[in-house]
């Protein structure tokens, strides 16, 4: 049984002539343990879809069954409780509360569950250790680097032992090194059986996903199973040239495969440009 099952889910804003269709009869079914990357241009409805799956929003039409329970018609307080226990959010801009320490930030979801302070902080400390931030427990968010902050945010998302993690452009504000760390963390969670939904603009990151969903104008236009370590074929065309992968890379792990970063490959060999130039005219001629 899929953990997330959306059927004919639509989200409409406004009414009458000014109706905006954010999502149009979306059908999506996600099994436990999948790492789904959601891609699409701005305005395609990715965020709206994530919000609905994460119970921050309610579909206008359609049904949403989460873990066997229909949640599409819940009131906001009920949704808050389900959200608290089942979903962990990771945002692009981290969204840590600036006036609380890292430890208190991570413990926040537990506070709303009614846990006592000592237990809360203990559990938070355990999760922080798992993400490697034990030495930053009493720091304030503004004292952390971007990567550390995002890892703290992931810790906060994990503290409740959620069934799903929803990450909205988790590496959007991070440099490449920090991005690598964060993605490795998410990958670990996936490897241990977690279900992850990630919205991203960076096709490279789809290497970590087991499935890639493409959206356009409120609809799902593509849904492919993907192997970890591979970027789906349809994305390769839009990217810069990807070097061939060797055996060493495969052993070294997925993040080692992310060799084709712009700063390295943009000034790539002439071979690339020539090859591309050579290709293009022929295809044009063929089409004519």
């Amino acid at each position: 049984m899929p953990i997330i099952n959306l059927q004919d889910v639509s989200k409409l804003y406004g009414f009458g002539d000014a109706t905006t269709v954010a999502l149009e009869e979306v059908n999506l079914s996600i099994e436990r343990g999948e790492f789904v990357a959601v891609m699409g241009p701005s305005g395609s409805g990715k965020s709206t879809l994530m919000n609905i799956i994460g119970l921050l929003d309610r579909p206008t039409h359609g049904s949403y069954v989460l873990n066997g329970r229909s949640v599409s018609r819940l009131r906001s307080n009920q949704r808050a409780k389900v959200r608290r226990d089942t979903v962990g959010f990771v945002f692009q801009s981290f969204n840590l509360l600036p006036k609380l320490t890292v430890l208190e930030n991570v413990a926040l979801p537990l506070a709303y569950k009614g846990m006592t302070q000592t237990r809360r902080l203990k559990q938070a400390a355990a999760v922080l250790e798992r993400v490697g931030l034990s030495d930053r427990e009493y720091f304030y968010p503004k004292q952390l680097s971007g990567g550390q902050a995002q890892r703290a945010a992931i810790a906060r998302a994990l503290v409740n032992n959620p069934q799903i993690i929803i990450a909205d452009e988790p590496t959007g504000n991070l440099d490449s090194a920090a991005s690598r760390l964060v993605m490795e963390l998410l990958s670990d969670i996936h490897a241990m059986g977690g279900t992850i939904l990630m919205v991203t603009h960076n096709p490279e990151l789809t290497r970590f996903a087991s499935r890639v969903v493409f959206m356009h104008d409120g609809d799902i236009v593509g849904d492919k199973q993907s192997t970890i370590g591979q970027v789906p074929k349809s994305l390769r065309k839009r990217m810069y040239y990807l070097p061939k992968l060797t055996e060493e890379d495969r052993i070294a792990g997925v993040s080692a495969m992310m060799k084709a970063f712009p700063d390295k490959e943009a000034k790539s060999s002439k071979r690339t440009t020539k090859a591309r130039k050579a290709k293009k005219p022929s295809t044009r001629k063929a089409k004519k």
């Binding site: 921050l56 969204n95 926040l108 709303y112």
Partner: peptide, 15 residues
Amino acid sequence: KEIGVRKAVGATNRQ
């Protein structure tokens, strides 16, 4: 924004 984060993390309106 803080209120938004708290709600995203599971706070009910009453809380």
